[in-house]
């Protein structure tokens, strides 16, 4: 083992990452103290990073600097208003936290109204597909469009809970919609597996290639 390789293995950034990764992944074999240690370390690091970043990238440039350097004195009002969040820790002032949360509920609702038409009107428009082969629409496209529209209607019918589904046509459409949903869920499930395994492969790759540099040995 050369001195350079040893030096690389012991680089703090890589060594800490490697030990931490092995500690966390060891949970799958057995719950152990090393896992719990690094779990707690992770929580501490994440909390500290979130706090520090909120100051350096949000509060400082958007609140402190304009207030102190830019002379925008009105921003000081954000401090007592922001303190209202912490009313949750007391019985007496808890209702004030609901006041400021209410403001954010309102803001969120407002942005939903803003975005609704822009997002969903094109979806509705695109659902009206050409169903007859003519001109630029080939027979294969028309067949696919029929499939698309039928699936869309069947799944919509499946989710109609506003009235009782008594009619045979409605019942069969809803059943067909349920079947189509299974196919869609299968596609989602297949996609879910990719992300989970990709995350695992990434960690193994980090250990073997970035830390142990095993890729060099076999090439």
């Amino acid at each position: 083992m050369s001195a350079d390789y040893l030096h690389h293995l012991l680089l703090p950034k890589l060594l800490l990452g490697a030990i931490g990764t092995i500690a966390i992944l060891s949970l799958v074999f057995r719950e152990n103290k090393l896992y719990r240690l690094f779990e707690h370390v992770f929580l501490g690091l994440a909390t500290g990073y979130g706090l520090a970043t909120t100051w350096t990238q949000v509060l400082r440039p958007k609140w402190w600097d304009p207030m102190v350097g830019g002379g925008e004195w009105i921003w000081i009002l954000a401090a007592p208003l922001g303190l209202m969040f912490y009313g949750v820790y007391t019985k007496k002032f808890a209702w004030m936290a609901r006041l400021i949360f209410g403001l954010y509920f309102g803001l969120a609702a407002g942005t939903v109204f803003q975005g609704f038409a822009e997002e969903y009107v094109p979806q509705i428009r695109a659902s009206f597909k050409p169903l007859i082969a003519h001109g630029a629409v080939t027979a294969a496209m028309a067949v696919n469009n029929w499939i698309f529209v039928i699936i869309l209607i069947c799944v919509l019918v499946y989710f109609f809970f506003a009235f009782e589904q008594n009619s045979a046509v409605i019942k069969r459409s809803a059943s067909a919609g349920r079947v189509m949903l299974m196919i869609a869920f299968g596609a989602i499930f297949g996609s879910t597996i990719m992300i989970r395994e990709a995350l695992l492969i990434d960690r193994i790759r980090f250990l073997l290639i970035e830390w142990l540099q095993l890729g060099h040995i076999f090439r």
């Binding site: 060594l15 800490l16 931490g20 500690a23 992770f42």
Partner: peptide, 15 residues
Amino acid sequence: GGLASLDSAMFALIG
């Protein structure tokens, strides 16, 4: 070495 590696490893468990 700390935060990013541990965060990745936590979610890699699900694999």
